[in-house]
Design a protein around this nucleic acid. Structure first.
Lengths: 237, 237
DNA sequence: ATTTTTTACTTGTATATACAAGTGCAAATA
DNA sequence: TATTTGCACTTGTATATACAAGTAAAAAAT
């Protein structure tokens, strides 16, 4: 297995992103100037600017010529949920994750309503089911299917604390660049009734999502059931 | 009036973007290599790469190390529905609009779940209700509330053929730049049951949306009910 | 005291250069 | 013939440098 060195600008991007996400830099704060970042991390300005460009594209900061880089706080998500998935959309404090079906490799014919390629089919997929609870109330139930190609130690990672998106980005340099989603309202079937502890005919939001990544040809899929009686999905667009 | 010089990388971006949008470069085609673009436009590679980076961020191209820049075609919309609203999301052919409550000016205290400013409250709002049918089947029911500030002849315009977004853009130079939305699944109340001709407990998708525009301080609001039993909402992100 | 100018910062644009690394094909080799 | 090697291309990363232009506050002039 070849471990490609993580480039400097990407390391700096991760550092700064983490500092914004954990609140070290709050909305309205200024990041250190580009020259200060150069000196602090022993980089040149084009490299530093490369990292800052990524933060701008993600919506974490905006820059003003002559003034500096101003932290915007949490970015606009892509699509209905935040780019970081439900974890950062809700806030990690009172959100817990219960693994219903641990990540395992299995064969697949299709991913929900989405077609998969012959290559993806032959390799099988990593399958997992998770239940997300907010203040001990089940809110999300999601099924995830990821093509089983070259993700070492993936099935042994823990998906309880961190979001899937974060693990893919930090450990495998896979970024979700966009995708497609179908959204519909359904009534809870028996399995969902049990997980959400709701009665028959309870309305449930369902999302079928295809996530496209920066690795060409690498997409993964999730189906999310959401009980919106207490929490509605909020997203910026 | 000061005309700031348009930078080189932006000019190149516009040129290439136009060539993609008008079909000169089609999906799957390769753009000229970076060195070729350098020679053709008398620029250096970092400048050319800056332009290509913008195309990547917009989703027009993807790049592959060792291969080249591959055209992806048209980029993605914003939000759950296309930027142009339901009309362009579905296709105008078999979609008809029925005005349930004609645009009228009335007072308002709030817009669905969104707060409004004192200025907006004092001016009142333009209110309208519309039912959208696909192949004569009611699918969308939406309520729109627009602050009543300086939109001459707005209430007398027809909203049956064209979408609200298009009218705002063409006649009032107002573009929707983004916004916020809440999405939830509910069961149809009596009014919705009648409009959609569905029985009790039928699951319905509801969206509360706040649209922010290029005019600072000008936002408008809509609440959309959607019967997803035949048509699910599809969106790219 | 008020206004203008200078100064010292900030980010924005652009060039020139170098090497790393992925891709695909032609040429050399077994 | 089949395989390997080398080469010529591609994009990716990084440095070093220079000047333009916006911002804000200090310094100088009125």
């Amino acid at each position: 297995m070849i471990f490609k060195e993580v480039p400097q600008y990407r390391k700096l991007y991760e550092k700064l992103r983490t500092l914004i996400e954990d609140g070290t830099y709050k909305r309205g704060d200024f990041l250190p100037s580009e020259n200060e970042l150069c000196a602090a991390h022993h980089l040149t300005r084009p490299t530093v600017r490369n990292a800052l460009d990524m933060l701008v594209n993600d919506g974490f900061i905006i820059r003003h010529q002559g003034k500096g880089s101003i932290v915007q706080g949490q970015p606009k998500g892509i699509g209905i949920l935040s780019l970081s998935g439900t974890t950062s959309a809700i806030g990690q404090d009172n959100l817990t994750t219960r693994i219903i079906v641990k990540p395992n490799i299995r064969s697949w014919e299709q991913a929900f309503n989405y077609e998969i390629t012959g290559k993806e089919k032959s390799m099988g997929c990593i399958y997992m089911e998770r239940l997300r609870l907010i203040n001990d109330t089940p809110v999300f139930y999601d099924i995830t299917m990821i093509p089983n190609l070259n993700l070492p130690r993936f099935t042994s990672r823990t998906f309880e604390d961190r979001s899937l998106f974060e693990i893919l980005r930090k450990h495998y340099q896979i970024q979700v660049k966009g995708g497609e989603q179908k959204i519909l309202a359904i009534t809870a079937d028996q399995r969902i009734q049990e997980h959400f502890k709701v009665k028959k005919n309870h309305p449930i939001l369902r999302l079928d999502r295809k996530m496209e990544t920066n690795r060409v040809g690498f997409s993964f899929f999730s189906q999310i059931y959401c009980n919106t009686s207490d929490y509605s999905l909020i997203g910026r667009f």
